[in-house]
Design a binder for these strands. Structure first.
Length: 629
DNA sequence: GGTGTCTGTAACTGCCACCT
DNA sequence: AGGTGGCAGTTACAGACACC
């Protein structure tokens, strides 16, 4: 019995391919074979026995990258669960021969999790559900060749958001007289698009890529390789520095060896990218985040359970208020106050200039959103407004922020609507997995019981690298999350002055008695010494504090994780720092590996890859450290 | 007061992927 | 094929502060 998994992305880097292979290996619990060119398989058994239609489906839309797929010989098993999990694969084909006996065929398919009635088992094509196709062919009087084609759920969720690009959804509905009619027409467009999508994928009729207005069929979007498949669910909802690539978040969870109902933890959750997919995989997740803005984004991004009816009603109500609003001058004092606050708080004159002309409208929108009773819906809309504030403070934009906000709200609502519709069709229970975001710091996770977590994924802050609040400053001030500003960057958070005893109340982590007696491993101490010797005193202090905090965090992670379970950490392989006028490669991944080992973790493996940053910034190579308790 | 040290902010590089 | 956006950073510079 053969299983062919066809790669979805153009993974040109061998490391990335290895990552994909690792994922499918661990899910199939077998070793798979790399396939460079899928077309060459066609000459070999059992592929040479397949009908043209199946060959067409297998060979269509393959990438011209390093590799096009992976092949494995597997025993009969619950393969449907694999379709629910994989990240990197466009389609999965299972091919096997079976005796020409309906009962035996039924049994074999049953073992894979496909339940069919005898009268359904006619030769030709069977569609038992939206993500499975079965092709039956008589090889001889005795034998049948069975091909089962699975469409991974992740792929279908990614495609679902593409239906928003169809004309029926893009253009303003002609018939609607009010907002309810407007949204209903758009929703109908999404539903029609999803239906068309599922049909299209099954027929395999190729739509050639072209640009511009010619696009009016879903195939024009999903068959075209440059379609951005990294934005399913509510990923990319809000700008956040250090956001992980959604592609790896699901892949990492697949490497954790967890099952439905388990609980995973991200101790440095940030804006939530690494756990946002958990509910669609039937997992519970806990995220720990120290910044309020990160926590808020994560809460919205990870909340696929949100009451969508209520959300639409609130949006319509808000839009009606916006339409009838007259801007009065009675907020003058408030406006002056907030202007002053932004000027002082950001110290960024450009952002100040850019945003002040829109401030009255922003305050108006914020007030109206604050009036909404439902906390989840309020937070959802506040985060969308925050994203607009960030955009408008970065660039000098003249067009109306209210219109821009309305379009954005509509877009995100329809994304959510499409996701929920697709989940309904695929019978995925979005309410099953629960995500909790806790404001706190991972050096003290006393709220979490020991040995209670089934797996952990994270991308920790990288030494002193990043200002996490960066462009979000103006929005943080307007939303009133002021405390974020004082420790929003790794640099500020880990700098020496926070060890000042007078500041213990504001930063409890440094109050820990443990802090002063922490022993660091030699690789950490060497880095600190190197920095001290090069007169970079400030940086050496920051790095020392960072490493000590990371050690405390490792200890906590070790405590909460179950025995033998995994902790995956995505970290840059090295940093290029200029020390004594010379560029030095600091092996940051090795240093953190040693730190993990010093609290008792084993290193079960290291996967090198270049995927994590969507558009590859300074960090060229990332390591995934696989710690095991 | 001179000198060195520390700290925060704005301005900036060059490359790469994406888009049309 | 050319334009554009953006980067898990660095450097220059100015001002604050520490110490003699």
């Amino acid at each position: 019995m053969f299983c062919l998994a066809k790669v979805k992305f153009d993974l040109r880097n061998p490391d990335e391919l290895y990552f994909a292979q690792r994922e499918i290996d661990s899910l199939l619990s077998t070793k798979t074979k790399f396939v460079k060119t899928i077309a060459t398989l066609v000459n070999k058994k059992p592929f040479n026995l397949l009908d043209e239609e199946v060959i067409h489906l297998i060979t269509r839309l393959v990438y011209m990258g390093e590799g096009q797929g992976f092949l494995a010989e597997i025993p009969l098993k619950e393969i449907v669960s694999i379709a629910k999990k994989v990240t990197f694969f466009r389609e999965i084909y299972v091919i096997f021969e079976v005796e020409n006996n309906p009962e035996l065929l039924k049994e074999s398919l049953g073992k894979m999790g496909i339940i069919l009635r005898s009268e359904q088992l006619k030769n030709g094509k069977i569609d038992p559900n939206p993500y499975t196709q079965i092709f039956l062919k008589n090889l001889s009087e005795k034998n049948k060749l069975v091909t089962v084609r699975f469409l991974p759920f992740q792929t279908l969720f990614e495609y679902a958001t593409e239906v928003k690009k169809l004309p029926a959804v893009v253009f303003r509905p002609q018939n609607s007289v009010n907002w309810i009619g407007y949204f209903k027409e758009k929703e109908a467009g999404v539903e029609k698009g999803i239906k068309e999508l599922l049909e299209h994928i099954k027929t395999g009729h190729y739509r050639s890529p072209h640009f511009g207005l010619g696009k009016n069929h879903i195939g024009d979007f999903v068959d075209w390789a440059s379609t951005d498949l990294r934005k399913p669910f509510l990923h990319y909802l809000h700008k956040y520095k250090g956001k992980g690539d959604p592609r790896i978040s699901r892949a990492l969870i697949n490497l954790l060896d967890v099952k439905e109902g388990d609980t995973i933890l991200d101790p440095f959750v940030g804006s939530g990218a690494f756990i946002a997919d958990a509910p669609t995989m039937g997992l519970n997740a806990i995220g720990i985040e120290v910044l309020e803005i990160g926590k808020m984004i994560a809460e919205v991004k990870c909340n696929l359970r949100i009451d969508i009816q209520g959300l639409r009603d609130s949006i319509i109500k808000l839009f009606e208020i916006i339409d009838g609003a007259l801007f009065k001058q009675d907020i003058k004092d408030e406006l002056i106050k907030i202007k002053e606050k932004i000027k002082k708080g950001t110290g960024n004159s450009k952002a100040y200039e850019n945003i002040t002309q829109h401030l009255a409208k922003i305050i108006f929108l914020k007030k109206e959103i604050d009036n909404i009773n439902n906390g989840e819906i309020k937070k959802f809309l506040l985060i969308l407004l925050s994203q607009k504030i960030v955009e408008y403070s970065e660039k000098s934009r003249r067009w109306d922020i209210i219109n821009s906000f309305k379009f954005y709200v509509e877009d995100r609502y329809l994304t959510l609507f499409a996701t929920k519709k697709m989940a309904e069709i695929l019978n995925v229970d979005l309410n099953r997995g629960k995500i909790t975001i806790i404001k706190g710091d991972s050096t003290n996770m006393s709220i979490i019981k020991g040995n209670s977590i089934d797996g952990m994924v994270t991308s920790p802050p990288y030494f002193d690298a990043l200002d996490y609040i960066g462009n979000n400053k103006v929005s943080i001030l307007i939303l009133g999350l002021d405390e974020d500003l004082s420790w929003g960057s790794t640099k500020a958070f880990y700098e020496g002055k926070h060890r000042d005893e007078t500041k213990y109340e504001t930063l409890p982590l440094f109050a820990s008695d443990k802090y002063f007696s922490i022993q660091l491993p030699p690789s950490s101490l060497n880095l600190i010494k190197l920095l001290q010797a090069s007169r970079r005193v400030y940086k050496s202090k920051v790095v020392e504090n960072y490493l000590k905090m990371m050690k405390l965090s490792f200890e906590e992670c070790y405590r909460v994780l179950r025995d033998n379970k995994f902790y995956l950490m995505v970290i840059s392989k090295y940093h290029k720092w200029i020390i004594n006028d010379r560029e030095r490669m600091i092996e940051t991944s090795a240093i953190l590996g040693d730190l993990g080992k010093s609290v008792g973790f084993k290193i079960a493996g290291i996967i090198e890859h270049g995927l994590s940053k969507a558009d590859k910034g300074k960090i060229g190579v990332e390591d995934i450290l696989i710690f095991q308790k």
